[in-house]
Nucleic acid binder design. Sequence first.
DNA 1: CCTGATGCGTC
DNA 2: GTCGGAC
DNA 3: GTCCGACGACGCATCAGG
Length: 389
Amino acid sequence: AACWTAGHPAPYLHLARTFDLVEREKGKIKTTAMLCNMFRSLLALSPDDVLPAVYLCTNKISPDHENMELNIGGSLVISAMEESLGTSKSKIHEMYKTYGDLGDVAQECRQNQTLLAPPRPLSVRDVYSTLRKLSAISGGGSAGRRKILVLHLIRSCREMEMKFLVRTLVRNLRIGAMMKTILPALAHAVVLHEKCSTGPVVSLEGVKSQLQSLSTEVTEAYNVIPNMDLLVPSLLCEGATFAASSLAMVPGTPIPPMLARITNGVTQALKLFHGRAFTCEYKYDGQRAQIHRLTDGSVQIFSRQMKDSTSRFPDLVNMIKELCNSEVASFILDAEVVGIDRNKGNRLMSFQELSSRERGSKNSSIAIQNIKVDICVFVFDIMFCNGQR
DNA sequence: CCTGATGCGTC
DNA sequence: GTCGGAC
DNA sequence: GTCCGACGACGCATCAGG
């Protein structure tokens, strides 16, 4: 039951209605089916909206390593709500204490509001591109310019769009569905879309196994290259023949880290090995770092959350470049960066001291001569080297 | 130029 | 990082 | 047991407002 016509931009309402269904349903199989249906409509009527929809579903606006942030929080949203919903800040704060969710507050305010004219409909791509615009705003008067964009969005909301738009703006979508639900839903949609349009009659068992296998492929592909800008176009182009092997691990795109597991203590852990030889690693009190060297010789550093931290560690970048054997073309290392006091017998410093380092930002690295906390690095894994593994 | 508010990322 | 709920 | 989202402490970056 699509609510728009082929070739036109999909309305944001299409997403909001799906979110509303998904939020009420707690069973994972059913929520996957709902999201799958939503994607099937997009595939059939406006496939260009699939990528923006994936981003809106997962509450992201770009791959993690591009460090794109909205720079919007509850404060600015409340201020925009006050202006566009005719409710005072104090009333909003009061309602927030009761509801515990700013999106629910906004929805409630909207329902008590009488509109003179119906809002101009929001499309999926408009919402997404406005979020990208918001992230690009900076400098003097930036709060005001952000607020104008937010006001436009809020004033255009229909039905339950308000709830999910506001939740998106404060980055708390709360639909209980992230990558582990969205990716299978998208994969299922691609399979069913093909079955529908090309139409050879296949057995129920055949379809089920195709759903399962494409779902696995897409999930594996995301675990190697967590970048929807690359994955979605590739998936749409190849359809059910999409294979994870078509995307390879590439320096410059961070890999989701295998986090160290918690155990019940040394004795318990030792039992797992039955006296066989093993290695262990000290738990350093620093910051996780994934170190990439690209084939062009450049070096990039990523955090545990796969954010680009290169601008924070120019000294580490130089260390790596100097240590590099020229015949090593490219690699990905898993490591821990720890603060170190080279004037006091190389004493390792606490996490807190390391964290007092300057941070730089998206476009500017910190100055190497201003660095007050030296660092050292403990490498504990080589995840990739010259195209291997 | 300084200070507080706001937003973000790390553990 | 910790905690507690859902499975 | 495992997963995952909510939560907290702390520090830096940026901007508004004086």
